[in-house]
Amino acid sequence: MTAHSDTPYTDAEVATLARRLLDHSLPKAQWTHAAHLTATLRLVRIRDDGLERDMPGIIRAYNVAVGGVNDDHNGYHETITQAYLAAIRAFVATLPAGLGDGEAVARLLATPMGDKAWPLSFWSRERLFSVEARRAWVAPDLAPLEAV
């Protein structure tokens, strides 16, 4: 992250972060919650078609490349990924034309999604962190995601 403005990333840094996710060169320590949201926003903006299908493979491959695993307790989580993807897609649709990626990320991180606990507004902890929710989409049990 940069310290040169209120925007956590420049447009170029957003593009680089997404590229480094895709080519597996992003250090694992930099794969933070903010980085997850940043990369997803960028991918939605540049190649949204098919991300529901492609994002699982992108994240799983990255996890393995940096020494992680994707199993019933670690790594890729289908429900969380698809929830954020849908919410970020809806967020991007509200952005003014011409807004740069850095400013878009700053605005995204300032929303409730910027808090890692955001999914718990929609899912109970037990349901969200179940093996079933990690493996496949599980609908929210507290509030509809459409309320986002």
Rank of each mutant, 00 (worst) to 15 (best):
N74V: 13
N74G: 14
N74L: 13
N74I: 11
G75I: 10
G75A: 11
Y76K: 09
H77I: 03
H77R: 04
H77Q: 00
H77Y: 02
H77G: 07
H77D: 06
E78Y: 15
E78M: 13
T79V: 03
I80A: 04
I80T: 03
I80S: 00
I80D: 09
T81R: 06
T81C: 15
T81K: 05
Q82T: 13
Q82W: 13
A83P: 06
A83I: 02
A83R: 00
A83N: 01
Y84G: 06
Y84T: 01
L85R: 01
A86F: 14
A86H: 10
A86S: 14
A87F: 11
A87W: 06
A87T: 05
A87G: 04
I88D: 06
I88H: 02
I88S: 02
I88A: 08
R89W: 08
A90I: 05
A90D: 09
A90R: 12
F91E: 05
F91Q: 00
V92H: 10
V92I: 11
V92S: 14
A93F: 00
A93C: 10
T94H: 01
T94Y: 01
L95E: 00
L95S: 09
L95H: 02
P96D: 10
P96I: 06
P96T: 13
A97K: 04
A97C: 14
A97F: 15
G98C: 11
G98R: 07
L99W: 13
L99C: 15
L99H: 12
L99Y: 12
G100H: 09
G100Q: 05
G100P: 05
G100F: 09
D101I: 02
G102K: 09
E103L: 12
E103I: 08
A104M: 11
V105I: 09
V105P: 05
A106N: 04
A106W: 08
A106H: 10
A106K: 12
R107I: 08
R107N: 12
R107E: 13
L108G: 04
L108S: 10
L108K: 04
L108N: 05
L109R: 04
A110N: 10
A110H: 14
A110P: 09
A110Y: 07
A110G: 10
T111C: 07
T111L: 08
P112W: 07
M113R: 00
M113K: 03
M113I: 05
M113D: 02
M113N: 07
G114L: 09
G114M: 01
G114T: 08
G114S: 00
G114Y: 03
D115M: 11
K116D: 14
K116W: 15
K116F: 15
A117I: 00
A117M: 05
A117C: 11
W118H: 11
P119K: 09
P119T: 03
L120R: 01
S121W: 15
F122I: 03
W123L: 08
S124H: 00
